[in-house]
Design a protein around this nucleic acid. Sequence first.
DNA 1: GTAGGATGTCATGCC
DNA 2: ATGGCATGACATCCT
Length: 538
Amino acid sequence: MDDPSAQFQHEDLIDILWRQDVDLGVKREIFDGCLRQREEITRARERELKRERELERIMQRLQKLDKETGEFLPSPSSVNSQAVPFSETLHSTEFTQRSPVTQNPLLSALLFSQKSQKPPSQEQAFSELLSLPDLQYYLDVLESDGSSMPLEDITEICHQNLPEPQKENSTDALCGVTQTISDSFEVAQPLSCMPSDPIEILETCIKTFSDPGNPTPSPSNTIYSCSTPENQVILPKCHINSSDSTLSEFCPYTINTSKPEQLNHAPGRDASQTHLKFEERHILLGFDDSASVGSVDLETSLYAADTLSISQSDKDELESIHSDYTDLLPLSLHSDAVEATLYETVTSAQHQTQNESSPKNSPQANPLTTSRAAGVRRVCRDERRAQAMSLPLSVHDIVNLPVEAFNEAINSYKLSNAQHTLIRDIRRRGKNKMAAQSCRKRKLDNFIDLEDEIEGLKREKEQIKEENERNARELQEKKEKLRKLYNEVFRRLRDEHGNSYNPREYKLQHSTDGTVYLLPRGTDNKTNTPTEDLPFAL
DNA sequence: GTAGGATGTCATGCC
DNA sequence: ATGGCATGACATCCT
């Protein structure tokens, strides 16, 4: 066993036996000690090689070799990056298009559904990253002594060593980059620890920026730069569905907002800052209820209806509301508050509709639920008109007050002709609506009653039919009995000579008093004659 | 896209 | 004359 070749053969044999599922009687770990050591050595060597390759690649990109002078020149991208500050880059459309937000397939589809955009390649994303002067500083630190340094320390060192103006300008950028790295790990690898190897961090960062299918968060600055309605709409959606773990995978902000404590891991930030950031993001992105309801205009609402997956019919309803009350409304009433109220009404109705009717759970829709949902949608039409015309009475009162009280009420207010007409129409429609409902109910009840009556008549008909059949059977039995009795009587009758009577020549006839007479046939007395239809059993 | 049910609304007649 | 009711017919929405 001391011979290395013999030991190698022994391990190989164990491995072969193990692969062939041969029970050796002991656990595999006992045999795997040497195997694991070999694997770890191989893995470390591969990691070392990979790191060297990455460093070499980074250096090649940072410094371009001038073929004429043989000197290393700064890459064009880094030159460009000095001309364009990072904050401006963040605000630019190009960066917005390349941001990880847009590389999230879901967000990208929602944000830029109109445009056909090619996701940036890894090279582009890499050069984008390397074009940041702050990141170059990071790389210097990484190369020098940051190989085993935690990310927080690297950030701190870079921040301290930066020149003052650049520090000020680049604070957000640094925070953005480090936040991105940190967030990337929080989201993409929530269960794993932060890699201690800076190259691995950088590598993950590169993958984060370049992988179009990687739904990782972007620097918060990117989001702040995107103050378009898309963000105001899409992100609340993420917030609304924050409990949905599936969607959370595609919406990193859900993770960040629902788990703010994870942001505490971000370098250079304490909990209060993170919380402040969270609140700030919440408000800026339209999470705040007061902001989203109070200041929303109808166009935004319509847009929100679009992106919040409201159906086409509801959008039409919203649009009809818009047109309806725009037609009805005096200009002074066309205020945000009214619109917000209307929007709230409709969205709450929509919400109620969605909550009440769950077609996924009930393939056959509940008629009551359906009718209630439709009612909610339809009932509000006159209410909209009443609100738009500022009627002093509620629709319910307009419809349900007695005539005297109603007339008294409308006379007590000073109503315009339009208001008067509308209030009369609302009452008429309301009354007619109730009448139509009762009429339909009555019609339905009549229909049901008629069906019940039909069923009863059918049953009665069956009973009568059965009784008829029973009576016919009994009649036949009685006829048979009478015939037999008649024949028996004839058979026993004898004349004075002891001869029997011929049934063809004579017949029996009984009177009402029970007396039986023997009469010769041909007698024209048909009363009480049971022999007309009696068969003769001769 | 279509069928069918539910509902709202209008027109009309009657009380 | 007026208001309310009943009902047929049509439109619209929703499943």
